[in-house]
Design a binder for these strands. Structure first.
Lengths: 127, 127
DNA sequence: TTTCGTTATTCCCTCCAGTATATTACGCTA
DNA sequence: TAGCGTAATATACTGGAGGGAATAACGAAA
């Protein structure tokens, strides 16, 4: 962002027209946003914070902080992590985590449609 | 903002619940956003980029870059600036600039109402 | 008890958006 | 012509978000 603070995303390529971003704040700031949801999906897919972070080219440290932040702000943890053991441990999505993903994508899709509807109002201004 | 990224805003205090941001991209990236609209309003109010920037505690250099970026991407300039003269020059909003402010606040208000409507969907998740 | 890959945690570094500062260009007024 | 407050432009600085790397803790399995 635009390394944004609150909502960094790669580039989003800036096509002319209306754009927007959606996120959910909790008691400590950001709770769920686009990037965090992707991270949750990758954790579900790989069963490990390390692998999830690698798959997004994100530093493990950053990924862990995001997971910790989400767990602290959620009514119930979204991710459960275990250290040691068979393969060194791992992380799995809780039922609550899966619900969060579904809810966010629902909001997200609705929002994209909303932006599409509003789009036309901006056309007269741009070069 | 959000270093971010393209849409830094002061803090927005992160109250729990659904939040969002809206902006309009042009050919070179951001064209209009919340901060740029505030800047346009301050220019209209003060008749000078220097004073507008000061009133927002923004560096003149940054303010000037934003104005330049908006003018370059708009079909017609939003701000006209004059150097030298009576009081050293100044800057005034064009008709197009005033239209941009109105349009944006219209989109913004509608968007806030939209967020309000979607708000309830997030309640079950937060602690 | 050794091995292994993960989570958890610490410390340092890098990058860059925005700031700070300085200088020049400008043109009306007196 | 000198003075003024602004626009315009260049250069250097800064703070903080995120990255990189290193280390300890962990616990099942061989």
């Amino acid at each position: 962002m635009q390394r944004k603070n609150a909502h960094a995303l790669k580039k989003e390529e800036a096509s002319p027209g209306l754009h927007g971003r959606l996120w959910i704040d909790g008691t400590e700031g950001t709770f769920l946003g686009y990037g965090r949801i992707i991270l949750l999906e990758r954790i579900r897919e790989h069963g490990s914070i390390t692998q999830a972070a690698k798959s997004m080219k994100m530093a493990y440290r950053h990924a862990w902080e995001l997971v910790d932040s989400m767990n602290r702000q959620s009514s119930k943890p979204l991710v459960e992590a275990a250290t040691g053991g068979r393969n060194g441990g791992g992380a799995r999505l809780t039922k609550e985590g899966a619900r969060a993903i579904l809810l966010f994508w629902e909001l997200y899709a609705d929002f994209q449609a909303y932006l599409q509807r509003q789009q036309k109002k901006t056309r007269l201004l741009l070069r």
